[in-house]
């Protein structure tokens, strides 16, 4: 099992999911977000992938009921898009209401995409992501949907600074320890050579 200290340290850094770029609350009309981009980086698919890894967890944390779906193709020349689906706020047939809230559990057999209901309607907005950086994609997302950005509380900013400071110190320590270790190793190597075991060189 992962050691408890490293686990707790990771949990303390959970803060990054709560605050930071991507911590936005989407308006109620947004019913679903999908992305499609290439599995490989070349051809400008770096931004979308970073957006997925860094920003989307924050978006999902703040909007737990909005389904987010990603499909990745293997063609570098293919599309790289972010679709936003909306439903008119008056009718509100959001996926949460249509989702299986009845007594039957979702099919346990792992069929492809059992948990997503097929949606054939066209997306309301489509943002091209090709060759954009993740922050640019986020800006466009906020602009098109009119999402509210969550500002961190003073306590959270303090904690963030603390974590930052801790990381800086640990990096310094790491360099120091590494230097010491290399010194010891170099001395041992020299001694080995002096004893005539030159095979290693």
């Amino acid at each position: 099992m992962v050691h408890i200290v490293s686990r707790m340290r990771k949990l303390r850094e959970l803060l990054w999911v709560r605050v930071g770029p991507g911590a936005i609350i989407l308006p109620k009309e947004v019913s679903k977000i999908t992305m499609e981009f290439c599995k490989k980086l070349e051809g400008g698919h770096r931004g979308p992938r970073h957006f997925w890894h860094e920003m989307l967890p924050r978006v999902k944390y703040r909007n737990p009921s909005i389904p987010i779906h990603i499909s990745r193709h293997s063609d570098p020349a293919g599309p790289s898009l972010l679709h936003i689906y909306t439903t008119p706020s008056s009718t509100t047939p959001t996926p949460t209401s249509t989702s299986p809230l009845s007594s039957t559990p979702p099919s346990a057999t792992p069929n492809a995409r059992t948990t997503l209901t097929p949606d054939t309607s066209a997306p309301t907005h489509t943002i091209p992501c090709l060759a954009f950086s993740e922050s640019q994609i986020l800006e466009q997302l906020i602009e098109t949907t009119g999402a509210v950005v969550v500002q961190p509380t003073p306590q959270e900013t303090e904690e963030l600074a603390e974590i930052e400071d801790f990381k800086r110190r640990s990096e310094k320590d790491r360099v120091e320890v590494r230097e010491k270790l290399m010194k010891v190793r170099r001395e041992q190597e020299l001694l080995k050579m002096a004893r005539g075991e030159v095979a290693s060189v």
């Binding site: 997925w52 737990p64 987010i68 779906h69 990603i70 492809a112």
Partner: peptide
Amino acid sequence: MHYIRAFEVGRNPSS
């Protein structure tokens, strides 16, 4: 579960 669902965003839910 709230956190885990955020971490697993965009993954195939059956895998």
